[in-house]
Structure formats: C-alpha cells, structure tokens
Design a protein around this nucleic acid. Structure first.
Lengths: 350, 350
DNA sequence: TTGAAAGCGCTAACAG
DNA sequence: CTGTTAGCGCTTTCAA
C-alpha cells in the first residue's frame, strides 16, 4: 500500500522511497552550502551574518520541501540534547497529572524537549527509566516522587547528568517539596474543628494511607500528631495505618483495625485521593458512611471528589509554585543539595 | 561546586571533566575492537559469533566503567530510533492517564522508548508537538484524542513516519476507538430506567459537555437520541448542550438553559468526568442536587467519583483492549486506514 | 559574508 | 571469530 517493509519483529522499517530531506538537499536546491543552511535553519545565522536574502531563500525551500531537522544528529554534534527528563509515579490523578502537564509546558517555554516516564512507584522501573533517559542523552533529569531519589542522583552523576528532586527530597541534589508537616497539621486541626462544630466528642483520628518510611508520609504523621497535641489529645500509634497508597490496602487495613476489636474513630485523615477511594468504599460497605456525618480530610486534591462530597476537607499542594521553584533552580544551574519547602493550600470541602 | 559552567540562558553546559565513556574507551580497556564492543553492548553479538569470554569481559568492563550507550548516535547510524511517540490531550484523569501509562508499559515491553506529549486539546500545540516528535525521529506516532488526526497523519506521511489514531478516528490512518454510540445508548437507557424504577415520570434527558463537531460527541449524541427513541421519547436539540468539556462551560451552559425559562430535565447525561464537575457544582449551587435523588450518567469513569456518589452511572472505556488493538496494529505493520471500534463497559454507580 | 572539512558515537559492510 | 573503515546528519572551527 505505501511501500512499508517489515522486519522480523514486525516493526515498520525505513522506507527507502521516503528518504528524509537533509540540509544537503536544501543546500543544493538553494545553491548554498550546507553550513549556511544549517545556520539558517537552527537560528544561529544572525551571528554568522548570513544575508537576509539567502536566509529567506533557504527558509522557503526548506518549508516547500518539508525539511525537518534531525535532532539526533544535531544533538550528537553539539553534545547537548536539549532534552529534559522527568520520572513521575503516576499520571492518572490531579496532582501528578498537573505536575506532568506543567513540566511539559515550562520545558517547552525554554526550548527544551520534555520526556516523561511514569514509574508506577516501582523502584526497579525508576532506575531502569533513569538509565534509559541518560542513554537517550537527557541534559537534566527530574525525579518526582521517587522512592530512592539519591540512588537516581548517583546514577546521573556517574554520567555527568544534572538531577533534581520534586515532591520527595533527596540528600544529593536540590529538592522542591511541599510542607507536608504544616499541611497535615492544618488539615488535622480542621477535621478536629469540624467535630467540635458538629457538637461531637473530641477523640483521636485515624490516619490511613502512605508508606510509613517515605519522607512525606513521615512528615504528615508528624503534623497529624502535632495537631492532636495542640488539641490536648494523644495520637496513639495504633491509629496510624500507613500500609501503602492503594485503595485495597486501605480497605484491608481498616478491616483489620476493626476486626481487632477497636471502634472506628470519629474522623479520618486520608493520605491521598487514591487511598480515599478505598476508605470510602469500606465505610459505605459497612454502613458507616454518610456524606453529611463523615469527618474526612484528605492530603490531596481532586475537585470532582470535593464537589461530590459534603464534608470532605482537602489539602492542595501548590503545583505551579513547585514547578516555578524547580525551573528557577534549573535555570540558575544550581546543583547543590538543598530543600525548598513550599506551603500547601486548603481546597475547602463541598 | 561540581564544575558546571553556564551559558547565557543559564543552562548547564557540558562538563569537560565528566566526559562520557564511549565504546572506544571500553574497547581500549578490554583490548578489543570498537566493533566487538558495540556488538556485545547492543546484543547483536550472538550473530557475530563473538566468543563468550570476550563478551563477558566487555560486559564487565562496561559495567565497571559506568558505560551508557548513546542512543542518539546509535539511532543516527541505524536510521531507526526505536522511539514511539504519543500525543494525548490530558494526563490528569483516569481515562487518558490509563492510556498514557499502558502505552508506556506496552512500548517498553517491545523495546521501544515511549515519548508522550500532552497537547491540552490545543490544535496548534498538537501540530507543533507532532513536528517536534518527527524532528526527534520517532519511528511511529500515535495521535490520541487529536482534534484533527488527518492533519497529523499528513505531516507524518511527509516525513515517512508511520501514524495511528486512538480514541478519535481519522480517515488516513488506522484508528482504534470506543463504541461511543453503543455506550451512550446503553447509558441513556440506564438513566431512563433509573427514573422509571424511582417511579418518576419519564421525560427527555439533558445532554451536557463535549464538542458537537468531534466524532465522539456526535456519536454519543446519536446513541443518546436512539435510546430516547427506544423509550418512545423525542430528544429535542435544545436539550443538547455540547459547548466544550470544561467545567465552567458546563455550568454556564446549564445556567443559560435555565435562564431561558426551561425546566431542568429529571436526568442528565454528562460527557466526561471533567464536565461532571461543572454539572454537579451547578446543581449544588442551585439546591438541585441530592445524591439520592439525582439521576446522572457520565460517559467516563472515575472510581472515586463513583464510590462517592449514590446514583451516578458511569461508562468505562476499555483501555486495555484499546491498547492491545493499537499495538496489534503496530506490531503487524498495518498502515491502511480502518476503524477498530471496541465496546465499552458499565461501571455501576455507587 | 560564505564554504570546506572534520568529527560527535555508533553500526554495518567488508576484509581478514 | 575479530578488526578496519566509512558514513548516518549535523555543527563548528578555520580559511577564504
């Protein structure tokens, strides 16, 4: 049909009949040298003081011929790819989705080509993806929400690639994160306040979701405890259920908690929207859920969830500010390890 | 601190002190030729019948020296990048998020390096992104949910790049889509059935969201009408509010509808979760929302929204099946235009 | 103002 | 079984 041939793996091989145009083709047609064409087509012609006339002729011919620059060849020669990579745990939620989208926009605004890979919170995949990005010659790699950011930084350093951390901090590269402790403390205080306002007896809340050993969860637990202390309450460790983010894990954890003979606390601090799904599912399945009576707080933000439920408090991380800080670091060339800690905001429930 | 230098734009320049290792470095250390090293390191050494011993020695040295293959150079020489690109409208929802995640996994399983770009439903950005991908030498480009798939296909064809469509069909390349009409018909029927079951009078529903001129919205409207006809109802055009996907547009459209002196129909067909946000917000703001009384159906799926609301029906597109069909096409080398139309599933409300 | 020539790192003929 | 050599498309001295 269109002249494709296929190799053993079934992949489409190069079509000899659609040989891509090169600067040599354009040069020949324009009666100029490849050098001139290269300069005109990559924008460096001003400083090479090529005549306006020649530049225009070349541009026109390139356009007409459907010339497209081979960035691989260009990068090989310049020893600079203008590629910027990012590792991100998931795409399908508001937080990481917004990070990915904003990262792309800001990279493009700087004439960098963004390459994002989603690692599904799998440490092995994170390392593999980092190595692949380096092999593809990214100039800079951002590890977002990585389980072991320092490991990634070391891999980058071995190849002389700059790296930065986002969302979860590392000790070896600059990190931009949210003030998880402060946000969690405010959220916890707000849930307790809701209890008070509803005339219910104050009691320690349940904490569900996350990984006890990751920095963010640890910080949120610290904020959770601090808010309890502020309210004159103790937050006993057995009320902290940090067995992962997945909905099923949350459901199982609450089921086990109740099976242990304990009463469900009057309010719940949930560590992400994905965990919230499991929490609400359990509550509904056990007739413990009433949109008007539930006292739920979620350290994460989803506008649809927010508008669908009556009494859900959500903490929204400031993605634009985080990305602005990240790119300020990138633009400045800063490579020293340091943590930039940004405040979170409240996205009122309902 | 680490020997970085910065150019005018503030970007980090190449560090001369961390010159990357090449196959020549490894060859010298291994006392072998660059050819042998290349073959061993890219896996083609079996057919070159290189001795096990040499291969092992080379592998070990490459490992120790932190060698990383330069894929740009490799691609330049082979005239095949093993890059596969995808254009996607958004990341931050379950549908496109799952598509992006699944696409990456399936590409990696085939030793292709996936490059995804999010185009925010902006036609200009779609074209720009397509051209950028081609300049970066993708072997194949998948346009997902593109506003003008055929335009993208033509750009690809001009450079001899294979292209495929996902979610929204084109006339010039193979397309994998959902059965929007059938899914919408079933969803509409289910909303009407809910009305009946609740003992409410049957009346035409409101359709909100989407773009009247995109294929999927048109098909869904067709299914919506067909279900009305099946129930002996007419679905008048003024009940079809397809003014975009954004929540604000949905709110504005409903407000204008009501301001026009019309009564709100007893049930609403919503064209996406993002639109649903606007619909629910309007209903709540106007005291027309009660989780138990509302009859809402959404052509899109979000498990958190589903579990948070009592009476919300959701249609789930079969992302794994769509990706399987897409990659079957890719693997087979098929380039002829044809549409593969996959059934949707119901994700029961509540 | 412009062009010729070298070479980025890798792979594929081809020669041994 | 292994090595030599040429060249992928581009950019960058350097020379004119």
């Amino acid at each position: 049909m269109n002249g494709n041939s296929r190799d053993a793996a079934g992949n489409t091989a190069r079509r000899p009949n659609v040989r891509r145009k090169t600067i040599y083709d354009v040069a020949r047609l324009a009666g100029a040298s490849p050098t001139a064409v290269s300069a005109v087509l990559n924008g460096s012609w001003r400083k090479r003081r090529i005549s306006e006339a020649l530049a225009e002729r070349i541009l026109k011919i390139a356009e007409d011929e459907g010339y497209s620059r081979n960035m691989q060849a260009s990068a090989l020669r310049r020893e600079r790819s203008h590629l910027i990579g990012m590792l991100v745990p998931k795409y399908d939620n508001r937080y990481f989705g917004a990070i990915a989208e904003g990262f792309e926009a800001m990279a493009r605004a700087r004439d960098l080509f963004p390459i994002i890979t989603c690692t599904l919170r799998d440490p092995r995949l994170e390392l593999e993806a980092a190595r692949a990005m380096i092999a593809h010659q990214v100039d800079c790699l951002v590890a977002c929400g990585a389980t072991d950011p320092d490991r990634i930084t070391r891999i980058c350093q071995a190849s002389g690639v700059r790296s930065l951390n986002l969302d979860l901090p590392g000790k070896l590269a600059p990190s931009v994160i949210s003030d998880n402790r402060g946000g969690a403390q405010a959220l916890t205080a707000a849930i307790l306040q809701g209890l008070r306002a509803a005339g219910k007896p104050l009691a320690p809340l349940l904490f569900v979701g996350g990984r006890a050993h990751d920095h963010n969860t640890a910080e949120r637990i610290a904020g959770f405890r601090a808010a309890h202390a502020d309210a004159g309450l103790a937050a006993p460790p057995e009320l902290t259920l940090a067995a992962g983010y997945a909905p099923e894990k949350a459901e199982a954890a609450i089921a086990a908690f109740v099976a242990g003979g304990r009463n469900l606390p009057p309010g719940v601090f949930v560590n992400s929207t994905i965990t919230l799904e499991g929490v609400v599912r359990w509550l509904k399945a056990n007739d413990a859920y009433d949109t008007r009576a539930a006292h739920l707080g979620c350290f994460d933000w989803d506008p649809l969830a927010s508008v669908l439920s009556e009494n859900l408090l959500m903490v929204r991380q400031d993605v634009p500010a985080m990305l602005a800080a990240l790119f300020a670091l990138i633009d400045s060339g800063e490579s020293r390890a340091a943590i930039i800690d940004l405040p979170t905001r409240f996205a009122g429930g309902g």
